[in-house]
Design a protein around this nucleic acid. Structure first.
Lengths: 147, 147
DNA sequence: ACTTGAGTCTGTAGTCGCTACAGATGGCAT
DNA sequence: ATGCCATCTGTAGCGACTACAGACTCAAGT
């Protein structure tokens, strides 16, 4: 069994996860503290699987807390599916809201840049737009700036 | 002149910027330290304008460093326009890349949630998708996760 | 005059998800 | 013995805030 043991560098290579990040995940309890060979951490296929799971969930934009929940659900039984679905669906809404925010930004910025190209007159339309106070700007959803 | 002086609370109300954030901006030199009436900060129309500028730039997703640059450019002369345009254009590219990232996440998540709805069989397709190792997942642009 | 309440002050520490060191070991090849 | 790389621990930094604690100022009400 121990013949498939790998060190942290190899785990990093296989999962694409930074070494420092792996240790960070261990520190915050997202990854279990592995056994040691000497002083060195010794990982096996389970660790590779779990860390892969974490990375893929992160790539989908789940927070570490959500990843923790998903891991629990993955370990849990059949009833977990509904809960996972709920979590994913709410996360999906969040992503869509962020897309909408970014598209608003994109639209406004694009207008400004194009105005800048069109007009070679007096002052910078881009900077003027930022100074202008009239009504609302790009942020429609919330005052909060969550880039 | 001093008759239009306002306190930090009023500045916060007029710009929609949190009081603590205003003081933070002062600390990092983004907003000038205003004169005091007694111990209280005393702001005028210029401050309202500048802070409004900052907020609008932030809502467009510029970083504080970029905002600083934009403020300098706004104070500078005519040559600033081109530079501002360049900054905005590069920021626009960044926003578009982030939109693309989020849309990838959205697509994958949406598939998973729908698979979850369709199939009431055995195991959770969502969690299985996260465990699956085959090829690449949602992140196509970079390994880096910048949500 | 006294109290109450709201507003403001300073300073520090926490958030999230890493990332980047410094300085000490470990183990292997030459 | 000497390099050299990998790994170890621990701590501090990033960006952009946010959240306190504990002190103060000031105007209004009783």
């Amino acid at each position: 069994m121990a013949e498939h043991a790998i060190q942290i560098g190899e785990l990093s290579r296989r999962t694409g996860c930074n070494i420092e990040t792996i240790r960070y995940y261990e520190r915050i309890g997202l990854m279990p503290a592995p056994p040691r060979r000497g002083r060195y951490r010794s990982y096996d296929a389970d660790h590779v699987g779990r860390l892969g799971f974490v990375r893929r969930a992160r790539e989908l934009g789940f927070t570490l807390d959500e990843v923790r929940t998903l891991l629990d659900l993955a370990a849990g039984g059949a009833a977990a599916c509904l809960e996972a679905r709920t979590l994913a669906a709410s996360h999906l809404l969040d992503i869509r809201a962020r897309i909408a925010d970014l598209r608003r930004m994109e639209r406004v910025l694009n207008q400004s840049v194009q105005a800048c190209d069109a007009e070679q007159a007096s002052c910078c339309p881009l900077i003027e737009a930022l100074y202008a106070d009239h009504g609302k700007s790009a942020g429609g959803r919330a005052t909060k700036i969550a880039i």
